[in-house]
Nucleic acid binder design. Structure first.
Lengths: 249, 249
DNA sequence: GCTTTTAAGCGTAACCCATACGCAATTACG
DNA sequence: CGTAATTGCGTATGGGTTACGCTTAAAAGC
């Protein structure tokens, strides 16, 4: 149990397990400070604005000071992507699995929509950050009384996570663009499509355009669209649970 | 119908509709050449290696020559993300919707896994590239005989697309890391988790770890995982189709 | 065919960025 | 107090995007 193996660098970083120095000059910053400043910059000016120089300026320090706390910018990005899942999930207990997972998915989306840049940070490995694992735990918990075995639960949650990540990637930038210029997403988008899509090469799409689907609100409305797909996935999970429990009694 | 509206810049770029010059020096490159070279570089050395300088060198031209064809690097990235969906989808006709969508999803994943960098390109707007729309059309086509109306079809396909994008984002980098260092994903990952996750704060996750789910093959195996979640989603779609057709006869 | 007009090719330079390295400043320990 | 350890950070290197303007090539007009 308490076999001490050498923990990977990312783990010690994300969990704040780097040994603190006893001698020498006192650090004027903490990893948490730096992460917070970087998140502030990203929230305000986008991920592209997050440079070591910019973050250091935000903290009133020189650029190179940051490298005493973080080995590279990639490490900072890793910290940011865990920090983005900030608020601890406050989910009601004792609800059925479907309500639980629905609230969970909405919760993840709500939190991450406040930090739209998360979708642009490349994923470098399996989740090990405390906030990531904390959310993961809550989703597993929601499946507690379904009778699924642990491996199936992980599969279901991974699928849900997959869906949510896709939702983020597809919807966040779109809804941002939509907010800035609604015209371009409604009629204008439909008309541009109509002009460029010919019925021969795109028969099915042409029918959709002809039916006027893209003329009003374009279906990239974040809530409606997310809910629809999410509902479909959860219907599938329900069927899966029934199959499993029917077989095992 | 043929009202000419001014097409957005991205559309004219992606569809090759920029007016060709009649006078002056002949261009020695084409947008397609540049896109192809950029894709080659990204495939071989990753998206980070794609710089205007590097792409120009690939073509034997000077850096600034590219800017006669492309307004910015972002435009080049846009071109790349449409080009990544290269091979036209060769899907069998006359299969039921579920087989069709399953093959479709596998097809998208197969094509995009050959260009893993797509997941890192930020999405800047609704899909307008020819390849994107072509794939979109094929998915809509697969739903042709389900009796769903056009708007529902779009919803189902968007959900599927969401799922596939999430799959890409989560799985590609992971499977790359897994290929490089399988140890880190199996026992080592499980042991690191076990050391860091305490049962009080992460009760559900602790049970999963105790059950040994993370000890063997970690469940980030691309095929198995994708198929499982995909199957769940399609089960949901099946239920939806039944509901809809039952109501409308 | 010569001139004019137009657009492509691209050298230069301005201004970003990440980060290696070394030294100065600061703190704790003996 | 001296010494070792550690942080702060100035400087330098080598990369990146891209604005600008000059040179060069091709077509159009005469």
């Amino acid at each position: 149990m308490t076999d001490e193996i050498e923990l990977p660098a990312e783990v010690t970083l994300l969990w704040g397990l780097r040994e603190t120095a006893r001698r020498g000059r006192k650090p004027s910053l903490t990893v948490a400070d730096i992460t917070r400043a970087a998140v502030e910059v990203a929230d305000a000016e986008g991920l592209a604005a997050v440079s070591m120089t910019r973050v250091a300026a935000q903290l009133g320090n020189a650029t190179m000071a940051l490298y005493r706390y973080v080995k590279s910018k990639d490490e900072l990005l890793l910290l940011m992507s865990d920090a983005a899942l900030d608020g601890p999930p406050d989910l009601p207990d004792g609800v059925d699995w479907r309500t639980g997972l629905t609230l969970w998915a909405r919760g993840v989306l709500k939190v991450l929509r406040r930090h739209p840049w998360t979708a642009q940070i490349p994923i470098s490995g399996p989740p090990v950050g405390p906030n990531n694992l904390w959310w993961f735990d809550r989703a597993l918990h929601a499946l507690g009384d379904t009778g699924l075995d642990e491996e199936d639960k992980v599969g279901v949650v991974m699928g849900l996570l997959t869906f949510v990540h896709g939702e983020l990637r597809l919807s966040i930038d779109l809804s941002k663009g939509y907010a800035e210029n609604p015209e371009a997403f409604g009629r204008q988008y439909g008309m541009a499509l109509a002009q460029v899509v010919d019925a021969q090469r795109f028969p099915a799409l042409s029918k959709v355009i002809a039916a006027g689907v893209f003329e009003g609100e374009v279906p990239y409305d974040e809530e409606a669209e997310g809910e629809f797909g999410l509902g479909l996935y959860l219907d599938g999970v329900a069927a899966f649970i029934e199959r499993r429990t029917a077989r095992q009694g």
